[in-house]
Amino acid sequence: MVPFAGWEMPVQYSSITDEHKAVREHVGVFDISHMGQFIVSGHGAEAFLNRALTNDVSKLTPGHGHYTLLLNEAGGVIDDLIAYRTSDREFYLVVNASKIDEDLAQFRSLLTDEDDVQLANASSMTGGIAVQGPKSHEVFRTLFGEAATFPPRNTIFVSFTNEGILWLCGTGYTGEEGFELFTPDSHIEHWFRKAVEAARASGGNVCGLGARDTLRLEMGYPLNGNDLSQLRSPLQAGLGFFVDLDKPAFVGRDLLVKQKTEGVPDKLVAFRMTGTAPPPRPHYPIVWKGEQVSEVASGTQSPSLGCGIGMAYLPVEAAAPGTSIEIEIRGKRFPAEVVKKPLYRRVS
């Protein structure tokens, strides 16, 4: 167990590699009760969120969600989150556990009395699980019956069961098909145990933070704190797709417009080790043309690829796929190569 944003969470239940493969080949169940949930409602909810977030929530019809970013005035990333529209006047936000307080402070600072917006923090009373992998459909059917509709990607469905209210989301952090379920924490253990049992019956397993990290890193998904920070913009992080510069002004937009025209100083890229090497880990120095130019933001041994992989901010001149770099590990330099994201693609 390790401390994680005020929670005690297992890095692994059995083995990171086994749990990782369970998700890629079968199905895995993650306890994501640590994550934060905000409910933003009222006549002004849409306009308010469009002022605070980079993506355009007015494009979401009820029942749909998207990935988006909360920036500071300077264009740096406070948090990355999923915003789901649950009705015309209500949004359900799922945020990083470690950023709940900072997110709330930022949202509150942008709220005025004229806004007609209610902002509720449901984080401490909400539990959640993520079910991920090609066999997540089997787990879904076991939980909800043969007739229930599996949540399509980027959708949300609020459901009422005898075991309480559920937010069922077609989202995940592994690159596999799957769903996430949020419910009041009094009932989360019921769903967790049922999902784990169903997953095991499908050849899957329960998974910890370790597998969550190796799975998301193979996809090139950023982790806030490692790959995102208040010092860098979403354009530097390669998240321009989730920034809508055409919508009305939002916090941090000025820098993004400037970077769009003048270019970014560095970019978050993926890399892989090209020979036998220890796994790259956060903060290891990165050398390009003989000079240290950066450090590893995220790094691990990829269970799917069998080699070290990672992400790092590199100067744009060194950021093109195919560029040779070196990772310095305990004083020795090991060759690596900048590669396209995702690092892992399903062989189908």
Binding site: Q12, S14, S15, I16, T17, T276, A277, P278, P303, R330
Partner: peptide, 8 residues
């Protein structure tokens, strides 16, 4: 440790 991937 589980899953040993490299021994220096």
């Amino acid at each position: 440790l589980t899953d040993v991937v490299f021994v220096e």
